[in-house]
């Protein structure tokens, strides 16, 4: 499907993915990548310029929003300020002409599900942000939608509440086997609860995969960089399948190629040892010599900036109660597994 605004470049183009029943799919990407537009196309609030959206085999592309049976939770929650909490939750049921006594029981059970009993008669403004969020979730779920759409649901909460709420959403989603699309720009959030993640950038699909795929086997350098800190080295493929970076040789997870290549390694996958220790790299392990430039202490980790022949590498180690064995200026040997060495030949790097 595709969405074009006016004569500008499409904000979402050539995007295609499918959702399994009961699956929690994450739409992940930097702001402005088109993930919210995608969500709004699914909900019908934005018309797709081309392409189709199917729900359970039925083409809903041209159905207006109010005939689509989607449950949407908005970033700002969008609770109706003039209605009580119970009225907010009941709204969707009233629209579906559910009988009054049934509405009352379903509203009560929806509020109980999000652990919000006893606030039914209050107005939204009397509730905290976290409570408002639960109301929004209850309101979206009570109508038993075909798909639950969550637009950055956690971005307005403080850090601690966010983790709780994240797990709670996941727990409810699992219990109801609710097919869900979750839009976020926070890779940790997406990794933590999604079955599969769609990584988007500039309106285009970068990769679809499980959190493990996305992190360990990113399809593009953009994905690799977006899901966590990572080192970049530029190199040249050699005929024997190794990569020449400066005057050292590095082996990567791919078995050779031609031309220029971008190598990426996660900082915490690199081991540091004092220089001069034996071992010069093997098919399974890379070894590069370097000099420590900076050490940054950030509580749970120590971050080393190490100058090597190929460039500056970031190395991250969990701190321990023992004193740090390295000082800036020390010569060190860096080792890391070949399979942790991501390589992107220049065709792929764009």
């Amino acid at each position: 499907m595709e969405k074009r605004y006016g004569s500008f470049a499409p904000s979402v183009a050539d995007l295609s993915f499918s959702l399994g029943q009961g699956e929690l799919l994450g739409l992940l990407g930097p702001s402005g990548c088109g993930k919210t537009t995608t969500l709004r196309m699914i909900s019908g609030l934005v018309q797709a310029t081309s392409g189709t959206i199917r729900v359970g085999g039925q083409d809903v592309t041209h159905l207006p929003t109010y005939r689509r049976n989607m449950g949407v939770m908005f970033q700002s929650y969008a609770l109706f300020p003039h209605m009580t909490i119970a009225e907010n939750v009941a709204f969707g049921l009233q629209m579906r002409k559910v009988r009054k006594p049934d509405i009352a029981t379903r509203v009560a059970s929806a509020l109980a599900m999000v652990r919000l009993d006893g606030v039914a008669d209050r107005k939204p403004r009397e509730l905290s942000g976290g409570q408002q969020q639960r109301v929004a979730l209850a309101r979206a779920l009570v109508v038993e939608p075909d798909i639950l759409l969550l637009d950055e649901p956690l971005s307005n909460l403080d850090a601690k509440l966010r983790d709780n709420m994240r797990n709670e959403i996941r727990e409810i989603q699992q219990r109801l086997r609710m097919t869900t699309v979750f839009v976020t720009h926070d890779q940790t959030e997406a990794m933590a609860i999604c079955d599969r993640i769609v990584v988007m950038n500039r309106g285009k699909l970068e990769q679809i995969g499980t959190p493990l795929d996305i992190y360990e086997r990113p399809a593009t350098p953009m994905v690799a960089e977006f899901v966590g800190r990572i080192n970049r080295l530029e190199g040249q493929w050699r005929n024997d399948g190794a990569i020449a970076v400066g005057d050292s040789l590095i082996r990567a997870n791919a078995n050779g190629g031609t031309g220029r290549v971008l190598i990426m390694i996660r900082p915490h996958r690199i081991d540091l040892a004092a220089a001069g220790e034996p071992g010069a790299g093997s098919p399974e392990e890379n070894m590069v010599a370097g000099t420590i430039r900076h050490i940054t202490y950030v509580g749970d980790t120590l971050q080393y900036a190490v100058a090597t022949a190929g460039g500056l590498l970031q190395v991250e180690k969990a701190t321990s109660s023992a004193t740090d064995p390295f000082q800036p200026g020390d010569s060190v040997a860096l080792r890391w597994k070949t399979r942790d060495t991501l390589s992107f030949s220049s065709e792929a790097t764009g």
């Binding site: 207006p64 929003t65 109010y66 700002s76 109508v143």
Partner: peptide, 17 residues
């Protein structure tokens, strides 16, 4: 001023014409 367009969209997604 109180009228946020998101509220109308929310009502629409809940099935209101």
């Amino acid at each position: 001023g109180k009228l946020d367009a998101t509220l109308e969209q929310a009502a629409e997604t809940l099935g209101a014409g």
